[in-house]
Design a protein around this nucleic acid. Sequence first.
DNA 1: AAAGCGGGGGT
DNA 2: ACCCCAGCTTT
Length: 341
Amino acid sequence: MTDRERRALLAWYRKHRRDLPWRRTRDPYAVLLAEVLLQQTQVERAIPFYRRILARFPTLAALGEAPLEALLELWQGAGYYRRAHQLHALARATGGVLPKTYAELRQLPGLGPYTAGAVASIAFGEAVPAVDGNARRVLARYYGLAAPGEAELRRLAEALVDAAAPGEWNQALIELGATRCTPKKPACAGCPLGEGCRGKRDPNRFPLPRRTRKKRLDLFALVLVGREGVVLVRREGKRFSGLYGVPMGEDLGVLLREYGLSGAAFAGEVRHGLTHLDMRVRVYWARVGADGLDASSKPLSVLDRKILKKFEEAFGETGALEADLGVASASKHADPDAKQP
DNA sequence: AAAGCGGGGGT
DNA sequence: ACCCCAGCTTT
């Protein structure tokens, strides 16, 4: 890439950059929060989470002093909940003060090559690259690389970083990928990198799509209706870790025995697609003697919200009592007429 | 190098 | 249905 092209891209960025909330601050904590939220999450989706979390926890120290569950409460629906665990651990490990170099940032939980580079360059002005999916695509196209490796991209990006404005440069590369050099139908006309781009004639070849295979997972969920709400368990392990949800498993018999039940009523089926998984959950419900919990007071995954909504629909159709089961806020209450098409 | 991890949007 | 998203961690 020529100096002239680099200057053109930087100038283009300064003129056309989107006005995003985290671009109005130089607070390293705010930059970090934004970058973590943006991991595999689209800008438009990250914005409301960014605002709410920053409003509730204005400083990293404040975040570290709060219980993890308070952060998870705000992280509900954002996905990749490990990010919340790691950010919370980071807040505690650093004592609320972020280190200022890429090498140190890279050691913190949840900060990989991209995020550490983004924070180091944007918040601290260190001349290190930050190659995300956008920058990867821009570089792959410009240099005509069908399947670039991480190391190769990093070498290229290191050589390009603008020493005087590393944060703006990294964001310029990203912004171009996000708004013009898009995966499909890139707007090559008027691209600041027009001349030397080798992918211009056939952008779809650079880079080649990454293959993903999806597995199907069949599960059973048990909505146990107690006196004051439904039985919720805290999910441990890898999936939805730290969030609450209804008992769920691959074997309905095992699930029923766990709660001493001989049977349960079928409420319906819920589908939940993840990147690597197609979940199909058959929802059953039963009354139990336990108290249960108010589902609106706990962080739940979107899957569990869907399950509770499905239960409500089935429960409503039985014409049973309208006692407050504590799941009311688990889904939007449709207006009564909505049921009759 | 590959798999696993959420959820939603675009085509 | 498939691909992608301002990726990271573990195997």
